[in-house]
Amino acid sequence: MSLPTSETMIEARGVEKWYPNGFHALRGADLTVRRGEVVVIMGPSGSGKSTFIRTFNALEDFQKGTITVDGIALSNDLRNIDAIRREVGMVFQQFNLFPHLSVIDNLTLAPVLVRRRPKAEVAEQARALLERVGIAEQADKFPGQLSGGQQQRVAIARALCMEPRILLFDEPTSALDPEMVREVLEVMQNLAADDITMVVVTHEVKFARHVAHRVVLMADGEVVEQAPPETFFTNPAHQRTRRFLDQIL
């Protein structure tokens, strides 16, 4: 596993968000992620973890605080948002593959359109990525013909095809049948060995223990505790973390 550098990739300070219905989802959440780091965010449902990482690529807006991603401040400036989205890939709980496009076209769509790279070159890279996530032979099928685990691996390859510097995972294995969880986690573990920065919202304790550099507990819209996995799981500093661990372990 490569060690994180000291360079800051994501810096979130005092982020507050209210949903239109008045729900106070984020209450001053802070997080710093360094380049090459793998950060796992855990927490009870409704604690704001998904909302929090969705603010990192502006899928959710926020009302107070600052977020800087790869040196670019997230603001209402649309150019900044587009620039950040190019560098930040996201993997969703529900995969969100484009069902009307073949697997290979799912991968090549954005690089060709957004990065303006030649289609043949992108297609070659896309096939290599599919090889890497172990489904090269499915390139010409449509997403609806794949299993959930295969779809999620395509989704990871699709995000990688944009060559992002940061990958966000929003509960990537929560919608999968149990026997497919492992194939996706293995792919993610292989990724973590590269120097790509990963922020992963998940309930997979084993993954957090073995892959994460740092585990973060969120509760009630705040970051309660962050520590290396050994400390986090065996000797947490906060009562709230202990309560949470008691429930899931």
Partner: peptide
């Protein structure tokens, strides 16, 4: 999620609308 996936890949809203 389709729009979100398209936007998160860097597609503009017009591109996401037209192609996804």
């Amino acid at each position: 999620g389709q729009l979100e996936a398209a936007r998160s890949l860097g597609l503009s809203s017009a591109q996401a609308l037209r192609l996804v």
